[in-house]
């Protein structure tokens, strides 16, 4: 175990679970502790991050980018140092918007070693 904890949440109400489940499995296999809270409103994401004292947040975006942006903004207010990465259906214009907020984006087609590598880097494991 790496000792690092990652919170994973879905910002939308769309229940496709395939992507986040594959990512969670790969992260666990790489030694991370993954806490999945499923569909969560922005304030629920923030609360869970505080309660669980996590090192990284992974957001699955199945809807409009502005919902994810609100979740990220709320997180920044509460835990400005906490890194965030995300995946899901994120078209290029939305990807640019999230990247401007310092969020790393892994759109469909991203490979698991790259995602795991990002988790290691973002949690300071190198």
């Amino acid at each position: 175990m790496s000792g690092k904890r990652i919170l994973m949440a879905k910002t939308g109400l769309d229940g496709h679970w395939r992507g986040p489940t594959i990512v969670a499995r790969a992260l666990r296999d790489a030694g991370f502790e993954v806490i999945m809270i499923g569909m969560a409103r922005p304030e629920e994401v923030v609360q869970a991050c505080v309660d669980e004292d996590v090192d990284l947040v992974g957001l699955n975006i199945g809807g409009h980018i502005d919902v994810a942006v609100r979740a990220v903004t709320a997180l920044r207010e509460e835990r400005p140092e906490l890194p965030v990465f995300c995946g899901g259906v994120v078209p290029p214009h939305a990807k640019r918007k999230l990247e401007a907020l310092g969020v790393e984006v892994y759109p469909p087609g991203s490979q698991l070693p790259d995602i795991v590598g990002a988790a290691r880097r973002l949690t300071g494991l190198g």
């Binding site: 910002t11 939308g12 109400l13 409103r41 809807g63 409009h64």
Partner: peptide, 13 residues
């Protein structure tokens, strides 16, 4: 409330 919290998603799909 669950929908209001994601109002921008409404009508997307």
């Amino acid at each position: 409330p669950e929908v209001v919290a994601r109002r921008e998603d409404v009508g997307l799909t």
